[in-house]
Design a protein around this nucleic acid. Structure first.
Length: 704
DNA sequence: CTAGGGTTAG
């Protein structure tokens, strides 16, 4: 009997598909406000006054602030509007606010240089020479043509890494042959960006300001993206604001760079605000901007936001490119919409675009997490048939998908292909995916062989691999192997996390005597408080108050996604150690602490107990609790039962986790409760009101 | 990396 929740499989494989669209509501509401309020709400706050460059314009954050206040004043249930935004700027005394220039900055035209070959070779020598000043100067002696403006620019453009770019730049400066225009700074900055040298970039920028060299949109976007890559987001915003203050309008490249800054910070509100103000300035965003929008909604798992992006592109007649599709597909996955991802992919292929490895990685991952075996395998076939591009991440994603779907043979074939392949190597991801499969199917022999192979080829086991192995050996009751693998992993640097502890705890729940003690000894190293708590639960004399306090404190120190597994395991432990009432206490506490949202749902026609996220023991406990409640209601006649009562265990779409429905069925039978497994709805147990009422009455009669 | 923006893995 496999405890559904407590398998490492469930711990690892359940993607936190979130249906929470709070952020989108906010974003869309914000969007609505932005569409409507420009006529009524004080426009001075949104207006970037460019007509008087001497007057300092308010900074971006100052401008955002009043908008934030506006949204807080908004009635909470305003309907969402996803229509094409219309500019409604009608205040004649003020100009239409403009936040970006609709013209991209022009780039200087390319000048042909006949001695390009010589200079490129020279640049390569500079790039390859020693980093010391002397070595560099020695090569400089051999410059094949005089360092005119264009020659110097060409060399500078071909130089890497950044240290060399700086050396050459400084050398040109000392030569004093021509003024250093903006483009020279821009080229050096780009090189510095590759080296993530934000401080040096900023130094150069100040040098430009001091010496009166103009900073243009290319300069700013380079500074901003460098700050972004160095995770200096406040710096990125600071430079964006600085450009307004100097009277320079960002063009769409700089603008979408900043959109992405907010996107990476997860600030949906700010992204939407900037986007909307760009739109009302007459901007038609290009695919890059839409990719940024898609990313921000994807990160928030926000389906409404994704729909908004699609609709915007449609109404503005912007054709998505491959990157936009890839980002949208990824976003669909995060929003838990595998079906829509599938149709979006077909739309993409129909439009004539060919998927790349990233596209396929996103889709395969989505199908795997959704347990859509048919679609995953069909796509895999199509990939092979069409010769669509693969890379090592896609290979590993296919392996993980096999783990999600329990495709042991397919995974082994792929694993061997990868082993033989020249263009991809087995790495820790590949091995971990295989360990996940063997852990799921309970193939302890192969799991052990793989573990030994890993140490032989020098690929360290990570915490997830260790968890899979613990699960595998626990299920196989090979407790000595479990202990060995745990000890070795910890010695080699694996830091046990809450998932691993949950897995150990689940093994404890179905082990007895010595075996349980051995596993508890492992758990003792990883989480001693949990072991103490298990002992408290077993001890009859522990009071409810103490259990409650200690449990709360343990949960507080447990990561979110491991809390329910912990509670499930602890309930199982109580039931398997003859502490049934304590199991009821823990279930009650778990419910109070919000670990089982929606456990019981009511409509006028039907009351339902949802035990899909519960372990076998927890599901049994919940069912008993429910029966007690129903009996009390029937006897006290305080409330009318609905026509239908049902319990949902889930059908166990996962190949290896179909144990819950069976265990539940036998528990129902043991209690002689009148619930029947539904023929047409898999995973449902159903009783009518009459059944329950007469069952309660006959039990009451028997008790007299 | 040929002066600037966006996308892949428990």
């Amino acid at each position: 009997m496999a405890a559904k929740f407590s398998t490492a499989l469930d711990i690892h494989c359940s993607i936190p598909y979130t249906s929470d669209t709070k952020s989108s509501r906010l974003a869309i509401r914000r969007f609505t406000i932005l569409c409507n309020n420009s006529t009524s709400k004080s426009p001075k706050n949104v207006n970037l006054d460019i007509d008087s460059p001497r007057k300092q314009t308010p900074s971006l954050s100052e401008q955002l602030k009043p908008l934030t206040n506006t949204i807080l004043d908004d009635p909470p249930n305003q309907p969402r509007i996803l229509s094409k935004p219309k500019s409604t700027w009608v205040n004649p005394t003020r100009p239409k606010p403009s936040v970006l220039s609709l013209e991209r900055q022009k780039r200087s035209s390319y000048t042909y240089i006949p001695q390009i070959r010589d200079l490129k070779n020279f640049a390569r020598r500079l790039s390859e020479c020693h980093f010391s000043n002397d070595a560099f100067l020695a090569v400089l002696e051999d410059i094949p043509h005089p360092p005119t403006r264009n020659n110097a620019l060409l060399v500078l453009n071909s130089l890497r890494p950044w240290q060399k770019s700086i050396l050459f730049f400084n050398w040109i400066k000392t030569q004093n042959l021509f003024p250093l225009e903006t483009i020279f700074y821009n080229v050096v900055m780009k090189s510095l960006r590759f080296g993530r040298q934000f401080e040096l970039i900023e130094e150069l920028a100040f040098e430009m300001i001091d010496s009166g060299v103009e900073l243009d949109n290319i300069t700013y976007s380079t500074i901003i993206t460098c700050a972004k890559r160095c995770n200096l987001f406040d710096k990125a915003v600071e430079w964006f604001e600085r450009m307004y203050k100097t009277g320079l309008m960002p063009d769409e490249v700089t603008y979408s760079a900043v959109l992405d800054v907010y996107a990476q910070l997860g600030k949906v509100e700010e992204v939407m605000s900037l986007y909307e103000r760009g739109r009302s300035s007459g901007w038609t965003p290009d695919p890059v901007a839409f990719a940024v929008l898609a990313k921000v909604f994807g990160a928030a798992g926000d389906y409404d936001g994704i729909r908004f992006v699609l609709q915007e592109m449609k109404s503005l007649e912007v054709q998505p490119n491959l990157v936009v599709y890839n980002t949208l597909l990824e976003a669909m996955g995060k929003a838990g919409k595998p079906g829509l991802a599938r149709s979006l992919f077909e739309e993409m292929v129909d439009s004539g675009l060919s998927p790349d490895a990233k596209t396929l990685t996103a889709l395969i991952k989505i199908y795997g997490k959704a347990r859509w075996a048919r679609d995953a395998l069909d796509l895999w076939e199509r990939m092979k048939l069409n010769g669509w591009p693969m890379d090592f991440i896609l290979y590993n994603t296919l392996l993980s998908m096999c783990a999600d779907l329990g495709l042991e043979e397919e995974a082994e074939t792929l694993f061997d292909d990868m082993r033989k392949s020249d263009h991809c190597r087995l790495d820790s991801w590949s091995y971990t995916a295989m360990l996940n499969i063997y852990g799921s199917v309970g193939n302890a022999e192969k799991a052990m062989a793989l573990f030994e192979e890993m140490s032989k080829v020098g690929i360290p086991v990570n915490v997830m691999g260790c968890t899979c192995l613990v699960q595998c050996f626990g299920r196989a009751k090979r407790i000595d192997d479990l202990v060995k693998v745990f000890e070795v992993s910890v010695q080699r640097g694996v830091k046990p996390d809450d998932r691993l502890c949950g897995c150990l705890l689940s093994v404890v729940s179905y082990c007895k005597g010595d075996d349980a003690d051995k596993v508890l000894a492992c758990l003792q190293q990883a989480n001693p408080r949990l072991v103490t708590f298990v002992k408290m639960l077993e001890d009859e004399s522990t009071s409810y108050e103490i259990v409650k306090e200690e449990f709360r404190s343990i949960l507080t120190n447990t990561s979110d996604d491991a809390r329910r597994p912990f509670c499930n395991c602890l309930i199982d432990i109580c039931r398997n150690r003859n502490r049934a009432e304590r199991a009821h206490e823990l279930l009650y506490l778990g419910t109070v602490y919000g670990l089982y949202p929606g456990l019981h749902t009511k409509t006028p026609e039907e009351w339902r107990l949802n035990v899909r996220a519960l372990s076998v023991g927890a599901a049994q406990t919940a069912f008993e609790e429910w029966m007690r409640t129903l009996a009390r209601i029937v006897q006290s006649e305080e409330e009318q039962l609905p026509e239908v009562l049902s319990a949902n265990t889930g059908a166990g779409t996962h190949k290896f986790s179909q144990g819950l429905a069976n265990a539940f069925a036998s528990h129902v039978e043991k209690l002689a409760a009148p619930f029947k497994q539904s023929e047409e709805k898999a995973g449902f147990f159903i009783a009518t009101r009459e059944d329950v009422v007469s069952w309660v009455q006959s039990k009451a009669a028997a008790a007299v």
